[in-house]
Design a protein around this nucleic acid. Structure first.
Lengths: 341, 341
DNA sequence: TTGAAAGCGGTACCAA
DNA sequence: TTGGTACCGCTTTCAA
């Protein structure tokens, strides 16, 4: 059963193919009556506009590329994807997902072959730190480049990111303000040239502690860095338990670390918030499994925003605020309390 | 800077456009020497084959559609997507994600407008129960239809799903085998015509209990069903705590329910496995946050498998085993123990 | 192994 | 508002 083409529909509706085309892509340029006739015929013949034919003629790919570190299954990445998809899908764009663009090889492979060159209308870069050289290569595609929690935002056409450093600074200040004295920051080691966003948080912690000390506060702070990988929670746990004195407050680089830490520490008799305070970062869905106090960011909204920026750029508009920085906000739940108790 | 087209490359390489085309799409039909010449010229001119032009000519959309219940951010859905993308991306296929195809309206909207008609090479249906009428509409697209944990699998061209009922039957038997007497099954209410896969689990539980009783076992079992929604964990918790006697074993419809239950119950003094055993279903990443014993399924692998089936079908091959049913397997961790203790 | 030429199915300009 | 028509950029016979 060969698919009906635009000519058959035109004939069936008694109009020209131009009119059929317009009835679909520019309904307002066709009279109500004609449009109905066309749409009815099209429907009867199971006709739909061919995207590839349209793309060929207009020169628009109707596709965007999304580059991400690591796997799309991570909390942040899939939220971003959902946000992008929610707005781009309806506008007729497909999203080609290139994940695991993090190791040296996958990066080189991608940037060398540039599989999307001339075949996408925009490129989104999420949570990977790209170097100037790579930015240059992306720019050579001559399509809008939008960053989401990416370093080098300024060299892109638009970007949106949260202020990781400021966020962790605030979180730490909160703990200090509660009266805590022995604070430790737990984080996973920075991966080379990857996800620099998350690493900025450590600087926020340090800054908050240093300025508190400078202001005369009696503070005993330190950071614990554990290697990335599936065992990072156990490593962090072990290091915490090995401390001379267990801290009275823990500041976590991310909820993904904070949540399991709370449940594991409970097994070792450390109750929260009776024995210590702990604060996370991200506010992922399951933060409330342990009633975690945390800094909230909303990557799905960031995806939506990024998509809107991209749509505007693709329409040729100029953004009056291309680069946006969001402040995460503190969500107070049950894992923090004044100290000493 | 106008993009170089195939003619310029042909001229630069001193060959015809046919040869340029073949150098990209059928490298083996072009002599080594010629190919290198072409590729070099193409590279220099920043030329790449246009996907839309190719699609138009070949009649292949190089796109597939993925229909999903609810949001792509759910554990199951994003794992499936990752699996599909991992194998389809390299084969040059985009995945158009249509999520939230669950409510009556979104379903009707999708099936009425059939936004992908004639514009995809295959359709995947994940975790949504589709009715015969909808299957019919999908079939009218004349492309392979692949189900992933979907009802009505048999009416599709291929499918893969886990045996939810058998899985929960096994899980329940395990608890009974440990000696447990007072077992409760906790699940969220079935949504209308959606995600029937998960609902089959309840039947497995009941079957296991009934046959144990029939075999003379002294068993006190019941099910607790809580409404879906953000509060389903609290509801389940409340119902459990309101029981005349707290059960000695809990069987959970999914990890998403089991994990937070373990941490919440701890606050009420119910320790696992000292006081009760609990078993989950899915084995999502964070099951080990509470060291959960659970039934494992691997939706990412299912995505991969589904993708391979689709690729074969798109090549026109016939599958000798189009419909696959996977048995989840029991992963023993720390939340189960013989009873009485 | 390579080249010539005829489309693939629309879009959009131009004219009516 | 509608129709005629020249492409869009590549793939693929067919012949050389």
């Amino acid at each position: 059963m060969a698919r009906a083409d635009i000519h058959e529909v035109a004939k069936a509706a008694g109009v020209s193919i131009s009119t059929v085309s317009r009835a679909f892509t520019r309904p307002d340029m066709v009279s109500e009556k004609t449009r109905r006739k066309v749409l009815e015929a099209a429907n009867r013949l199971e006709f739909t506009i061919s995207r590839s034919a349209g793309s060929l003629k207009t020169g628009q790919a109707n596709r965007v590329a999304l580059l991400m570190n690591d796997t799309i299954t991570s909390w942040f990445n899939v939220q971003v994807f959902a946000g992008l998809n929610a707005t781009l899908r309806d506008e007729g764009y497909d999203i080609a997902v290139y994940d695991h663009i993090d190791t040296a090889e996958t990066r080189r492979e991608f940037f060398d072959t540039m599989p999307v060159r001339h075949n996408v209308d925009a490129v989104f870069v999420a949570s990977i730190a790209i170097d100037p050289n790579e930015v240059g290569q992306l720019k050579s595609m001559h399509v809008p480049l939008i960053g989401i929690n990416t370093s080098a935002s300024d060299s892109l056409d638009a970007s949106i990111r949260i202020d990781d450093e400021e966020g962790m600074f605030t979180a730490t200040q909160h703990l200090i303000g509660l009266g805590h004295r022995r604070i430790v920051y737990v984080c996973s080691a920075a991966a080379v040239s990857l996800d620099a966003s998350v690493d900025a948080r450590g600087r926020g912690f340090i800054r908050a502690c240093e300025s508190a000390v400078e202001a005369g506060r009696d503070l005993d702070w330190q950071t614990i860095t554990v290697p990335r990988g599936p065992e990072f929670i156990d490593s962090a746990l072990a290091e915490l338990l090995a401390l001379d004195r267990f801290p009275d407050a823990i500041c976590c680089q991310m909820d993904m670390l904070a949540i399991p830490l709370v449940t594991r520490l409970a097994r070792y008799g450390h109750r929260v918030p009776q024995d210590y305070s702990i604060i996370g970062f991200d506010d992922m869905q399951n933060a409330d499994w342990v009633n975690l106090t945390t800094m909230r960011q909303n990557p799905q909204d960031m995806g939506r925003d990024a998509a809107h920026k991209a749509l505007a750029l693709m329409r040729g508009e100029t953004l009056d605020q291309p680069h946006e920085i969001i402040r995460p906000r503190l969500v107070l739940r049950g894992t923090d309390a004044p100290f000493p108790r």
